[in-house]
Every structure is written in structure tokens, then in C-alpha cells.
Design a protein around this nucleic acid. Sequence first.
DNA 1: TGAAAAACAATAACGACTTATCATTTTCCC
DNA 2: GGGAAAATGATAAGTCGTTATTGTTTTTCA
Lengths: 131, 131
Amino acid sequence: MTETRLGQRKTKQRDTILEVIRSASGPLTVEEIHQRGQHDVPGLGIATVYRTLKLLQEAGLIETVILPTGETRYEPTELGHHHHFHCRTCDVVFDLDACPVEIPGGGSYPGGYIVEDHEITLYGTCPACHV
Amino acid sequence: MTETRLGQRKTKQRDTILEVIRSASGPLTVEEIHQRGQHDVPGLGIATVYRTLKLLQEAGLIETVILPTGETRYEPTELGHHHHFHCRTCDVVFDLDACPVEIPGGGSYPGGYIVEDHEITLYGTCPACHV
DNA sequence: TGAAAAACAATAACGACTTATCATTTTCCC
DNA sequence: GGGAAAATGATAAGTCGTTATTGTTTTTCA
């Protein structure tokens, strides 16, 4: 269990925000984090969410994901290489484990492009949204 | 050749902006479009660029791409299914033809996700940047 | 427990990007 | 070619996500 002490003091707000992000099934928006955090910390302020996200990023515990829609979301760094599935029906974003890409890291691509990394978002319907 | 008449009148600015986007080797930022357009139309205003981008989108001639960096870029709709390569050295974004994804459209994914579409960005070094 | 410092909530301010305004220029159709 | 309407360029204003400010509350440690 990683030490949650980010600044000098341990607070319910910070513990809660990190836990919200870690227990999610996909990357969350600031708004989602704010709302879910309020279950544990009623009155949680939006500024605290932003402050804590910044601290968590500086501590290397979370990272930013920007989806092709332009939405900024946050996810735990502890997840390894993975991609995202965006359900067009419910708009929820899920983590996926399997990687559908054929190119290995370090591979090269027609035209002479040397590929070091890749980022993928899949779109469609999630299990809960199709009958 | 598609009719460039977007509003009621044909102008050098609009022709130029569309041509800049069509002749690019990858999606361009507003700034890039503005700068390249000024080769043909000195004094081209940034407001005109934004106005024209909106018209071109409404006309279905171009579309917006938001990269994982959060950068908004524009590319011609006439390009079919393709992906992007972002060179980490020169920061230029290129179109790629080959699609490295194994999942066919309409395929399904472990966990019950029905995949309709996907978006990919590759990162690495472009031909011009490696020795 | 009590005091100093850190963190908080509320909200004003900021910054980057985009859109609106308006006087001037350009297009286009008679 | 000339005039009405559209488009332009300059820039002010608006938007929206994020950060800074400030007075209050909470944490921590003697």
C-alpha cells in the first residue's frame, strides 16, 4: 500500500480522492472524482480536487489521459499498458487489458516511422448497454 | 474537384485555407493553418481562419482531430480510415495508411464490449528525424 | 490540550482558445 | 463599372477549465 502522505499532513480528502481513482473501472473526469468523493467527504470542494490531482500527479501516483473527444481524465499509474473503451451509449470509459495492436514497441512502420509507443481508444457499446 | 463555395461568395482566403489543409501530410493546428495560409494571403487574419474552419466543418469538408496531447488539429474528411504518427523529436503529426489493429469493426472484445470504431496515435521518430 | 502550520471551501482571477463586433475591403450581379 | 451585401482584419469580449486568494477549519506534535 503506497503512502498517501502527499504534503505534510494526511487528510480525509486526499485519501478519498486517491481511493476514488484507484477503485474506478476506467479513467475519471474531474467532475466524476468530485462527485464520487462527496460520498465520503460531503462538501468536498472542487479546488481541493484540483489541488489533490496535481499533488497525486507530482507524486507519480496518477496520470492524465486526454481522450479523442478532448475530455481530460485521470487514472492510476499502477495500471500497466492498457487502452480505453468509450461506450457511445452511456459515455462511460472503461479500461481494457488486451492490446489489439500488432506493432511491437520499437517496431517500424511503412515509410520509415520508428514506433516507440501507441495510444488507442475503442468506441462502441459496453456490456451494460447492449441487450 | 469539390466546389469551394462555402458561403455566398468565393474568396482567396477560403480557397487557401482548404488547400492548405488538403495538401498537408497530417492534421494541422490552427496556428499552422494560419501561418501556411499567409504564404498565399499575406495578412490573413486569425478570425478568418477560425470562421473558415467552422464553415469547412459544417460543409463536411474537414474534421477535427484531438490528439492525446490535447492538441486540436484539422484534417480533410476525404481521407478514409487512417491513424496518426506523432514524432516526439520534431512534434510533427503524420497520416498513416496501414491500420495496425486486429479487431474488425463490429468485433467484440473480452468482457462483452462491442467495438464499432477505434482511434490510434503512434509515437516515435519520423523518417526525417532519425539519422 | 493548545497553538502553529497545513489544508480546506468558496469564489475571484487567470489564461488559452474561440467567437462577436465593427469599420473597411472585396465579391458579384445587374 | 457601380452598388448592395458578404467577407475580411483587428481586436474586444466571451467561455471554460484551472489556479490563486482569503478567511476558516483541521491536523499534528509538543
